[in-house]
Design a protein around this nucleic acid. Structure first.
Length: 156
DNA sequence: GCCAACGTTGGC
DNA sequence: GCCAACGTTGGC
């Protein structure tokens, strides 16, 4: 397989949780609503089969809830064309969409949420984007080292 | 192209 | 609900 990359994708569980994804047909859903250029560009760089942590933000406690796989390459986020959506983008046209999304498929919900506190306590993650001061990016790259260190919490 | 004002994110 | 940090907007 082509080189597999790793990512982290944030969602507020009150808006879209890992259980919401689990309840979708084929456990697959579109990751819509991303309205940040850096995050968008990371989604455009995603390849089929890349894996990502599903991170729950703005909740108690925040943390990693599960693992998803990229099931469809970046394509225009339909909510940008919907005048009634909070994600409406007046500058966007069908010919020149501004915002993109990928589809993700649930690989597994982790046996328990790995909290932000626990992540901060792991020396192997000291350089992780998520843990950087002031980091707000909703889509982030994760290094293979970080990925493995996190999985090691579950696969003893 | 600068940068002040404003809006958003997200942990706490 | 607060507010630090960051991104975006818009006047100049």
């Amino acid at each position: 397989m082509a080189e597999q990359k790793y990512w982290l994708m944030k969602s507020e569980p009150e808006v879209f949780s890992i259980d919401d994804l689990a309840g979708k047909p084929k456990k697959t859903g579109g990751w819509d609503g991303v309205r940040n250029y850096q995050a968008r560009n990371f989604m455009k760089a995603m390849k089929l089969g890349d894996r990502a942590f599903f991170y729950h933000s703005s909740c108690e406690p925040p943390g990693i809830a599960g693992i998803v796989e990229i099931a469809r390459l970046a394509y225009p986020d339909p909510t940008q064309f919907d005048g009634k959506s909070e994600y409406f983008e007046p500058r966007a046209t069908k010919d020149k969409p501004v915002w993109f999304q990928v589809d993700v498929k649930l690989v597994e919900k982790l046996p328990r949420l790995l909290s932000l506190d626990e992540l901060r306590g792991m020396p192997a993650l000291s350089g992780m984007v998520l843990l950087k001061r002031g980091s707000r990016l909703s889509i982030q790259p994760v290094t293979p080292t970080e990925w493995d260190a996190i999985l090691r919490c579950f696969r003893k």
